[in-house]
């Protein structure tokens, strides 16, 4: 027991405490100045804004994927089911170079998109694409077990009460999936906000345009501007905290409604 706690303290608590201590060395004014500088604000905006947009895309596409995987039988279904985990297992640097090469102007998907006048690699769109990539498993894997567990009788009950298929999905199935969908959204968002490896290759990293907050931390560190790096890190850390906390609360709330049998 003592060993556990001391290990946890050593490996997790001390480093995090160090981060907060460091940020306390800054006066509130300094702290505010760092955060409100144009480049920091833009980096945070890019990270949070695009991460949210990507999480929303993942919510929609993830739901469609879950529906296809759980409800339908089609050739290759099991393979696609396994493939969903690839973004989780693939090292982020590998994902980064692969996505960049794929969406570069001469890449397999980049070329046809360029012909349509859409430039992905080295633009904010590229960041968006990379964030979608890494977020897929989070939505799918949180929603999938919940959809699998929905009792067929529930849908039959709705049907026998006269609900159309569409009404059954909107009024009965979606609300049952609600907590899982929100959890998946939050997890995908949290992951995308902090993502570094898979984003920096495709991002272009143009300050104020396509520079993500984690990259700005790295840049500030390499400039030995530790205060700047720390301030940005603290903001991101607090947001992560809030998200985990919200997810945990959401799960507890969902569980309190579930045991209906």
């Amino acid at each position: 027991m003592g060993l556990t706690l001391s290990w946890l303290t050593l490996i997790i608590l001390i480093p995090l405490a160090g981060l907060f201590l460091k940020s306390l060395e800054l006066s509130p004014e300094q702290f505010w100045n760092i955060l409100s500088s144009r480049r920091t604000l833009n980096a945070l905006r890019v990270s949070f804004g695009l991460a949210f947009a990507a999480a929303c895309v993942n919510l929609v596409m993830g739901s469609i994927i879950v529906w296809a995987l759980v409800r339908y039988r089609f050739p290759g279904r099991r393979i696609f089911d396994a493939i969903v985990d690839v973004p989780f297992a693939l090292p982020t640097a590998v994902a980064g170079v692969a996505l960049t090469a794929l969406f570069a102007e001469k890449g397999w998907l980049g070329a046809p998109l360029a012909a349509l006048g859409i430039k992905v690699a080295f633009t904010p769109v590229g960041i968006f694409v990379a964030m979608i990539f890494i977020g897929i498993p989070f939505v799918v894997r949180t929603v999938q077990p919940v959809l699998q567990d929905i009792d067929p009788e529930i849908e039959e009950a709705a049907g026998s009460l006269g609900a159309s298929r569409w009404q059954t999905i909107i009024r009965v199935i979606l609300p049952s999936l609600g907590p899982a969908l929100l959890t998946g959204l939050a997890l995908a968002f949290a992951r995308a906000v902090g993502e570094y490896g898979s984003v920096i290759f495709i991002a272009g990293n143009l300050p104020n345009v396509s520079e993500i907050a984690p990259l700005l931390i790295v840049i500030r560190l390499s400039e030995f501007r530790y205060a700047d790096a720390t301030a940005i890190a603290v903001v991101m850390l607090v947001v992560s905290f809030v998200i985990i906390f919200a997810v945990n609360r959401l799960q507890r709330w969902a569980q309190s409604r579930i045991p209906v049998r």
């Binding site: 001390i14 480093p15 995090l16 160090g18 981060l19 460091k22 982020t92 997890l187 949290a190 992951r191 906000v193 902090g194 993502e195 570094y196 490896g197 907050a213 984690p214 990259l215 931390i217 790295v218 560190l221 530790y226 790096a229 720390t230 890190a233 991101m236 850390l237 992560s240 998200i243 985990i244």
Partner: peptide, 15 residues
């Protein structure tokens, strides 16, 4: 799991 890997590295630089 939910902290940016960059921040995970940063805390060790700070230490």
């Amino acid at each position: 799991f939910s902290v940016s890997p960059v921040i995970s590295g940063l805390v060790f630089v700070l230490l």
